[in-house]
Amino acid sequence: MIEIRSVTRSYGTFKALDDATLTIREGEFFSLLGPSGCGKTTLLRMIAGFDDPTSGAILVDGQPMDGIPANRRPTNMVFQSYAIFPHLNVEQNVAYGLKRLRALAQVSLVGLGKRGATELSGGQRQRVALARALVMRPKVLLLDEPLSALDKKLREQMQVELRRLQQAVGITFVLVTHDQYEALALSDRIAVMFGGRIAQVASPKEIYQRPANRQVADFLGGMNFMKGSVVEANGATITLDTPGFCRVRTDRPAGFSGNGHATLGIRPERLRVLWDDARASHEISGKVVERHYFGEITHLVVDVPGFEKPLSVTETNDFGADDLPIGAAIRLGYDPDALVAMAD
């Protein structure tokens, strides 16, 4: 549906986007995820036609977009600020592109048609922006951080609505966001970007469980990183030894140089506290040095003898992790499948 072919956008010597290549499939909910300044908005604006690549090509529906202005592209955009026309009412805003009002019902704005654009709440403005873009029947809907201006509760509600809407209309959605949970919850696939480059393109589950590198792993939730030494490296797999953990044989990580060292990672929630005489196939022993209470969960910082850094552990409060005294000796269990190898 959308093909980004080695697109670069430079401003003087600064490269906002550096040789990005990407394919977005038809009917897909695709997210561009990354910290501010990573080039995700630049890429979205180039797909929309508000900016041109310095080099490379963008194709939408097989058509090269080079030289085609925004008003003649099969894309429509929901702006971060929503860009609701203040001098028009809701109906006039929605019908701006054409005189079809079907979209009003689709995003539950019925009865608001005559209301002035300045009298709307944040959530309503967002709906107007969505409706206004959807009446155009675009092949691709571009969303530039559409939920960032909303408070947490409303944002979660709109996430559900957005996902439902996408499934109902079946249009390709491209979402720009810096919120990893939003990207994980909404997307079919995610491209994680850093410093103008695409670091990884994969499904939310794969990105979370098999991050391509430390940066990706760190951006999507917490992760414990350990130095491991490579004992064997074949074509497709490597075997890694990490003090305190079992020997791991995994897929060869992207960018792995061939020998020496690699990084081993495990998510804090994949380490679980073993209560009383519970046993796990793989165990680590340590001492609680910090405890942070978060309501349904508790974050524990566990010092393990021989480790450079203490381990972060996220534990549910069902068994009393919130009552663990500082200094308590505990055992942690893990599943070898939860260990991820990454290039240094």
């Binding site: 202005p69 925004a70 008003n71 955009m77 600020s81 203040p86 155009m136």
Partner: peptide
């Protein structure tokens, strides 16, 4: 962005 929005919605 309002001008961009107008262009996005098909206006020359």
């Amino acid at each position: 962005t309002l001008v961009e929005a107008a262009k996005d919605l098909g206006d020359g």
